[in-house]
Nucleic acid binder design. Structure first.
Lengths: 249, 249
DNA sequence: GATTGCCGGATTGTCGGACAATCAGGCGTT
DNA sequence: AACGCCTGATTGTCCGACAATCCGGCAATC
């Protein structure tokens, strides 16, 4: 929860820069300093999300250092970041391991999601125009992705982007940062079992219906609908995790 | 968000160990490994909360290393932890500084608090007995502290402990971890302006009334009451931060 | 045969030193 | 006053080192 928007990759912030004004001529310019640690952490995240290293796998400092051609110190710092994001777990004097999602953790993530997203949905009317528009755009992207039959991982990303935009309605960077961390954990759990996706078209329709309710001011109905949707998603994810017989690559 | 309970000191978890059973004879035993980094981080937190180093102060690696008699690497790691908790901010190539709370940040913290605590309050009936009991105990402690006229910092701690116990009602470690981070930021902001506390007895009564509502099942009323309380707390904190003329020491 | 004691390899935790890259501020030049 | 340059301070990253800790296996013990 450091810079309060780890933005674990995948969902672009959407917020374009403010236009330049006569008094502030270069307001559009910005440049992201990328430290080595950042790049290492990013690469590790990618590997986790792509399922290249499964839950429980130890992340050895020396091995990683040699593999990525950087010093052990740098790896150590990057691992610290992953641990802080919940993607990995540090066991003192034993090392850090890719986080394993037990049913309890899945439930907790579901619970936390519900609180954040319902809070966002309830604030639909009070949110800014940009925030509401972001939700519509997220749905549109999801619809497009489903239409062209994108791969499961892209569908998942687009799907989560919708929920993220809903959580963003609350207008709190800190809450959004937590939501991002939760979505990252979800992606971690779904890395290897993405195929379980049901009919994408149905999903699009369901989410569209949800937003329709919001647009019509039926906030409470939408909130209940959302909670149900999330409860369903949770059991669905539990099933997926209980059938880890994926047989070796 | 690593172990999901940084427990930034102050509020003990309250949850005692599960009793030993015939099959698990030593369930009560546990031992906290304290690494050097942990202790450094803890000492830094203390210094921040006690106002020994004010917001905006740069935390120089070399200086800290020499002062605390540890290596720069260790300091660096500890600073990373503080940054991850939001207590400090890292500016690339410039160093890490004690976080300064601008009005916008205060508002965000207030917003996030409201979401988390209201969510907890709404779940009063659904929470476990221990969690409800924790709220009552927190209030009792606060009352005691007010009665014996404890110092402001202790009062603040006891006060926040109440709100923490309410957030805990939601039953989600992840949400609670975020709440802890928020309380830590609040403590940071209040480090030097603790005296603004109004009549402690009134505060006790107000919180007692809130819990009474919950006990009576008036959840929605309690939720509204709580939101109002938090909004008030926010403006009160803003006032405090706008009068930083603390002079001397 | 189960428990205990001990050894060895692997890995982390911490240290110290080193150096390039970057930044802030001062100083002189134009 | 704006620009360019230099210097000192600080960070980012690297390397090598060593003790502490942990795991596993093997031998000794009851």
């Amino acid at each position: 929860m450091s810079d309060h928007s780890p933005q674990p990759d995948g969902q672009p912030d959407g917020g374009p820069h403010p236009p330049p004004t006569p008094e502030r001529p270069f307001a559009t310019l910005s440049l992201e300093h990328s430290s080595t640690v950042d790049r290492v952490a990013e690469e590790l995240r990618r590997a986790l999300f792509d399922g290249e290293v499964g839950p429980g796998t130890p992340l050895r400092e020396l091995a990683l250092a040699e593999a990525m051609g950087v010093s052990r110190s740098t790896i150590r710092e990057a691992l610290g970041a992953l641990v802080a994001e919940g993607l990995a777990t540090r066991e003192p004097n034993r090392g850090v391991f890719v986080t394993e999602l037990d049913p309890q953790a899945v439930h907790d993530v579901g619970l936390a999601r519900a609180v954040l997203e319902v809070a966002g949905a309830r604030r639909w009317a009070g949110a800014s125009d940009e925030e509401r528009e972001a939700v519509r755009e997220a749905i549109a992207s999801f619809r497009d992705a489903a239409a062209v039959g994108a791969d499961p991982s892209e569908l998942t990303a687009a799907h989560l982007a919708i929920h993220r935009s809903i959580a963003a309605l609350a207008g709190s960077p800190r809450l959004l940062a937590l939501a991002d961390a939760l979505y990252a954990e979800i992606r971690l759990g779904l890395a290897k079992v993405d195929r379980i996706r049901r009919n994408a078209e149905d999903q699009v329709a369901a989410h569209q219906a949800l937003v329709d309710l919001l647009e019509q001011g039926e906030v409470e109905t939408a909130a209940r609908e959302l909670e149900e949707h999330l409860a369903h998603a949770e059991t669905s994810m539990l099933e997926a995790l209980h059938l880890p017989h994926d047989e070796g690559t």
